[in-house]
């Protein structure tokens, strides 16, 4: 009903290769998030799947059918764009009805379907309005309505929440997750926000410079990052990376320690350092510590009045939570790591 497979997919714009070689298997009904820094090729990969870009090489299979060169409308996928891309001269009703109209559906069928969709998205009072007369959240829902009306096999979202304010973003996030629970169709969701990725995804594809670095569940990415890029990208604040003698002690080029896996004390600990900056977030405090080398260590801890800038304290990483990486940045499996 909506499994998607990418097989050696490659995309180059002229001489610039944006996606060198993407391989991915997405199961039917899965909520997959593509996450990565801006410009890493997430949109390009999504547009290749949508059929809006022609791949340079490789194959795309939907439900086992090769759709590499099929027209976008033939892939039974619907897309929600970052700008929503609503048709400005059409009413909300006409916007939502457009895909059915293009499919040659009868007028009374269209009317019934639009009513259903509008009801489920709380858009009934706005059907006669133009998109311009709607709020950001309502426009977003119209875009979703236009996507679900065709009952597609899969949905593609390209940073759909980035134009909304923070409060609305959180509630729309819940709404999209709710939509996925209700429809049970495959969804691919692109974002650069790792919190969005972690909270919504069944599985996350972490991308970097056009490559899929790791494809796994949110918890696995957090627990067992395949390399330094993934380790650094997932989790906030970022994982601390330390090189040199401290890393050699663990038989690694680099060791990684999450800010939440560090204990501190005033007078005793493994490493000594000076508090540079303290960020009080209310529930917790984020402390930036400079070790006696050039390394900066960030850790989070419950609120404590004794943590003030300039003070010297001691910290100890939890030994079972130390990640080890080799010279290429790949994770070294081994005993000195959290299972």
């Amino acid at each position: 009903m909506g499994s998607i497979k990418l097989d050696g997919l490659k995309k180059a714009f002229g001489s610039q290769t944006v996606i060198p070689d993407a391989n991915l298997e997405i199961a039917d009904g899965e909520f997959v998030v593509f996450v990565g820094p801006s410009g890493c090729g997430k949109s390009t990969l999504l547009r290749l799947i949508a059929g809006l870009e022609e791949p340079t090489d490789g194959r795309i299979l939907i439900d086992g059918r090769d759709v590499t060169h099929a027209a976008p409308a033939r892939r039974k996928l619907a897309m929600v764009f970052q700008s929503y891309a609503l048709y400005p001269h059409m009413s909300v009703y006409q916007n939502i009805a457009f895909p059915l109209k293009m499919a040659g559906e009868k007028a009374d069928v269209i009317r019934v379907r639009v009513q259903e969709v509008a009801t489920s998205l709380d858009l009934l009072p706005y059907l006669e309005r133009r998109p311009r007369a709607l709020s950001g959240g309502q426009r977003q829902r119209v875009a979703i309505g236009r996507a679900i009306i065709r009952q597609p096999a899969g949905f593609l979202f390209d940073e759909p929440l980035s134009n909304l304010d923070a409060a609305l973003r959180v509630s729309m996030r819940t709404e999209i997750s709710e939509l996925h629970r209700r429809l049970r169709s495959t969804m691919i969701y692109v974002t650069h926000d790792q919190v969005e990725a972690m909270t919504m995804a069944d599985r996350i594809a972490v991308m970097n410079a056009g490559r899929i670095e790791q494809f796994d569940t949110p918890l696995e990415l957090y627990r067992r990052p395949a390399n330094m890029f993934v380790a650094g990208f997932i989790g906030s604040p970022k994982m601390n990376f330390i090189e040199g003698a401290r890393a050699r002690e663990y038989d690694a080029r680099t060791i990684g320690i999450r800010p939440e896996a560090i204990d501190w004390s005033i007078d005793s600990g493994k490493w000594r350092g000076r508090v540079e900056r303290v960020e009080h977030l209310g529930a917790e405090t984020v402390v930036h510590l400079s070790l006696d080398t050039a390394d900066i260590l960030t850790f989070r801890t419950p609120l404590d009045e004794r943590l003030v800038a300039g003070r010297t304290i001691h910290v100890s990483p939890r030994e079972d939570s130390i990640y080890r990486f080799d010279g290429e940045g790949r994770a070294i499996p081994g005993p000195k790591r959290n299972p």
Partner: peptide, 12 residues
């Protein structure tokens, strides 16, 4: 541009 692409996705 995205409007035209949306229309393509919608089967236009």
């Amino acid at each position: 541009h995205e409007q035209q692409e949306a229309a393509r996705m919608d089967g236009a």
